[in-house]
Design a binder for these strands. Structure first.
Length: 598
RNA sequence: GGUCCGGUAGUUCAGCUGGUUAGAACGCCUGCCUGUCACGCAGGAGGUCGCGAGUUCGAAUCUCGUCCGGAUCGCCA
């Protein structure tokens, strides 16, 4: 029989002294001193210490059976602890509950790992026993933040007259972008649904329908390889608005972010957020999602060294590459061994050919690793350009553009982490704007939409659309927080002609466009409002808010790197009858794999 | 698909220049203990050193292959 609790395990204080209470929870730890047994009783709210005394004979005997993770209910009396026994670590540390009755609801085998905060158990074991991992207080706290995050989001949009509309999970496969997860149709042999990579077309259609302001907290799916910050199924806050421009979307976003941070982690952030063009971001930080919690901005030495004797510099610049550097403060006396290891790491992790440096320290003065190839005044000019002072270290990469920018961007992040230049408590938001509309794919010999094919080109660049498509800027924008891309969107094309032109540019001919997106083009015939929107990565934002570095710590049941769920062993083989229903035959090698398993 | 790191007790790891019976901490079990809160003390159980070949008198240790996990590049409109 279950006793209904009167309080949870983080609730009782000295104010409750003398009250008869009922608690339910898990045995977190047991401290058996012989004549007295202390149990830390845990639920998702916290811990309360309960006590059994030898003088309560039968009860004490029963309590001796208790083991870690047993689920119990107790009746008892709240007692104030003696001055010397108060535990300041617990909210309930001023009291304990003297047990008068004990019910063991459920015994527990020894768990494969301890249910404690911050244990370094490997991912595989944690994922296999995910329900136990989720019992750990730090993960539970993450889920609380996540739940607060949902509530805050809904309140914000509801208060601002947005409508929450659900869009289909079974939809049409789109040719552009990430690989789709496919769902075979039983009633239409040979045909497939796709799971949405995002509800992009639906939300645009909702604008055509006149819904004006839409949002949705929605699952999206992308069948691509995983990373620490990338899961195959993830959650977005999807937003679309009519009769707006970039500034409206940004303002709405900034209000949302302010509210979210206030409601979840009680942080104030100032708006408007900084803005930076894509070009500026790439040239200053070597990435389109710069972590602006620290400096180490790039210095460009290309002009200074283009005529130097040092062949690596001069030939790099001649071939259109760049010679770039960052100044690491206070590392001017870095030892040879450290630099050698760093060089190796840079080569391995970024693919840079080599690492050149200038050390500035009191003992050696200004010392450049390639000084015999460079004039003193060139080195001095570089130091000047890099804004380096005595005691600093200038790290230099030379290489083809844009690769060298990305490489130095990675090196910059390494240095920021290595030398603790990052303010871990800061929340640095940044808008990145003016993305290129398209980029050329050498493999496919065609242009790709950098954002997606519905993104509007910048009106000033329209005339370049035919001749110089790569020069055309888009009306897209990304929101970056602490070096993570947490959102992205654009002002859309709402003109049928322009949309058709865009498809042509992307190598999607009329027939193909009709087949894939005919419904959208058709919708645009009947009065489409100017509109734009944005989508935010819920998992990533919650990860940042909880101070984590892996999405798995903020998703209740995440997938591993192979997109498998180790707990329930999915994906898994299915019966032949199921496949027959779906009109599917397996390829030979897939059949062999299946037979090997069985 | 490429690169890198890892796989030894339930967990986290040490051992790896080949050599006695593979260790530590935590956890687990038993006993003692009335003020613990990382309880303490005494004792104990627990190992396919991922798997398979090879080298060797001898392999956790060296070589090759393979499987598994993670990070990362490609990929992710």
């Amino acid at each position: 029989m279950t006793w209904k609790r009167s309080h949870h395990c983080s609730e009782l204080t000295t104010e409750n002294t003398g009250e008869e209470v009922i608690l339910n929870g898990w045995v977190a730890t047991r401290r058996d001193l012989g004549g007295v047994i202390f149990i830390d009783l845990r639920d998702r709210y916290g811990i309360t210490q309960i006590v059994f005394y030898e003088t309560d004979k039968n009860l004490h005997k029963k309590a001796e059976q208790l083991r870690t993770e047993y689920v119990i209910g107790i009746k008892g009396v709240v007692e104030k602890r003696g001055e010397e026994n108060i535990n300041d670590e617990l909210t309930t540390g001023g009291i304990e509950v003297r047990v008068t009755d004990l019910e063991i609801y459920s015994e527990a085998e020894t768990t494969p790992f301890e249910i404690k905060e911050g244990i370094p158990t490997n991912e595989e074991t944690r994922l296999k026993y995910r329900y136990l991992d989720l019992r750990r207080p730090d993960i539970q706290e993450n889920m609380v933040v996540r739940s607060d995050f949902y509530q805050s989001t809904r309140a914000y949009f509801h208060n601002n007259e947005f409508l929450e509309v659900e869009t289909p999970v079974l939809m049409k496969s789109t040719p552009e972008g990430a690989r789709d997860y496919l769902v075979p149709s039983r009633v239409s042999p040979g045909k497939f649904f796709a799971l949405p990579q995002s509800p992009q077309t639906y939300k645009q259609l909702l604008m055509v329908s006149g819904f004006d302001r839409y949002f949705q907290i929605v699952k999206c799916f992308r069948d691509e390889d995983l990373r620490a910050d990338r899961q195959p199924e993830f959650t977005q806050i999807d937003v679309e608005m009519s009769f707006v421009d970039e500034d409206d979307i940004m303002e709405m976003t900034e209000g949302l972010m302010q509210k979210l941070l206030k409601d979840t982690v009680d942080e104030e952030v100032t708006a408007p957020f900084n803005r930076m063009t894509y070009k500026e971001a790439m040239e200053t930080y070597g990435t389109d999602k710069p972590d602006t919690r620290f400096g180490l901005e790039f210095a460009d030495f290309s002009e200074l060294v283009k005529d130097s004797e040092f062949n690596i510099f001069s030939s790099t610049v001649e071939k259109g590459g760049a010679v770039l550097g960052i100044t690491v403060p206070g590392q001017g006396d870095m030892g040879r061994g450290v630099i050698d290891r760093l060089t190796e790491r840079v080569q391995n992790e970024t693919g840079a050919a080599g690492l050149i440096y200038i050390k500035l320290n009191e003992d050696d003065g200004v010392k450049c690793s390639v000084e015999k190839f460079l004039k003193d005044e060139t080195v001095d000019a570089m130091v000047d350009e890099a804004d380096a002072d005595m005691g600093d270290l200038v790290l230099i990469l030379a290489g083809a553009s844009p690769d060298v920018y990305k490489q130095l961007g990675q090196l910059r992040l390494m240095m920021g982490e290595e030398y603790n230049l990052i303010d871990e408590d800061a929340y640095e938001f940044l808008w990145v704007t003016d993305f290129p509309l398209v980029e050329y794919s050498k493999e496919e010999h065609r242009y790709h939409a950098l954002h997606h094919p519905f993104t509007a080109p910048h009106p000033e660049d329209l005339e370049e659309l035919d001749d110089n498509p790569e020069e055309v800027r888009s009306r897209g924008y990304d929101l970056v927080l602490n070096g993570y891309e947490i959102g992205g969107g654009s002002i859309r094309i709402h003109d049928r002609e322009l949309q058709t032109q865009m498809f042509e540019l992307l190598g999607i001919d009329k027939e193909e466009a009709q087949k894939r997106f005919g419904f959208l083009l058709e919708a645009f015939r009947y009065g489409a409002p100017p509109h734009g929107g944005i989508a935010f990565g819920v998992d990533r934002i919650v990860m940042i808010l909880t101070g984590g570095t892996s999405l798995r710590d903020v998703i209740a049941f995440p997938k591993n790197q192979k997109a498998q769920s180790l707990m329930d062993n999915s994906p898994d083989y299915v019966d032949k009858e199921q496949l027959d229903d779906l009109h599917i035959n397996l390829k030979e090698y897939a059949k062999e794999e299946q037979q090997e398993q069985e």
